[in-house]
Amino acid sequence: MATMRTLVQPVDHAVELSRAGANVTGSGSALLHLAGRHPLGLIGLVIVVVFVLVAAFAPLLATHDPLATNAATSLAAPGGQHMLGADFMGRDLWSRIIYGARISLAVGIASTVVGCVIGAAVGLVSGYWGGWVDLVVQRVNDVLQALPLLVLALVMAASLGPSLTNTIIAISIPVVPHVARVIRASTLSVREMPFVEAARAEGMGELQIALRHVLPNTLAPVIVLATAQLGSAILTEASLSFLGLGIPEPYPSWGRMLSESAAEYVRTAPWLVIFPGLAISLVIFGTNLLGDAVRDVLDPRERS
């Protein structure tokens, strides 16, 4: 009996518990809640914050100019003057990784924000106005979602040409349909809420209702999605740059550091493979931990 573990959640029980006032979620600040209930989320937050600080204070942390080449230190091993070694062109790996955080986070955050804003607008319009607009938007979403994220980003990057801005655009477009879909779904349910009807009865304009009443009520899923997408955006940037289609030289992008002769460096200069990859994985791991916790906090039911 003692070891019995029941996952059953009888209806009556749920009612009884909520009647009993046991439902205390939402007390205290969101951050405290995160720390207490989601220690892993806190770790994720710390990782992300550390990377943001590294990016912000890159000039203070870097020991060398990340772009300065030096034939004498080509492929220098870690230790001595170069803490993590140097690449083929003799550039200091530590400093390049430090400055790489700027590229990675800037591209990741910017493309997530752009994708979420466009996606939210599209989803709101299609969910709130419905009709043929909705129909067209949904079909376009189907199309955009049918292509693998990386393929779509590759084609976008190829047709726009390599640059920082174009990479951001290329990565943000695949985010749009995901966000639009979620916002559309929650808009559909919020639209039917009594307070929307009340606002309409008060003579509020449709646009105003959509922005003042419907949009704020769909924000929780957007925040959940945005944190989940951040890691994916950072990974896409790394993949694009790895394939030579993302951030152009000489910007120090982690993905780019792994490209070109990486398979060769595996044998001759493994530090050139290990450290940039570690940086990518760690920051994505952090955003994933954070994303899970944010979802748990804002989304009472666990979603896939």
């Binding site: 009996m1 019995m4 573990r5 029941t6 996952l7 059953v8 959640q9 009888p10 209806v11 009556d12 029980h13 009612v15 009884e16 009647r19 009993a20």
Partner: peptide, 19 residues
Amino acid sequence: ESGCGKSITALSILGLVPS
């Protein structure tokens, strides 16, 4: 009424109380 404990009584008899 719902919430008075009648269902939990039943589940207790069967040892099915969520634990």
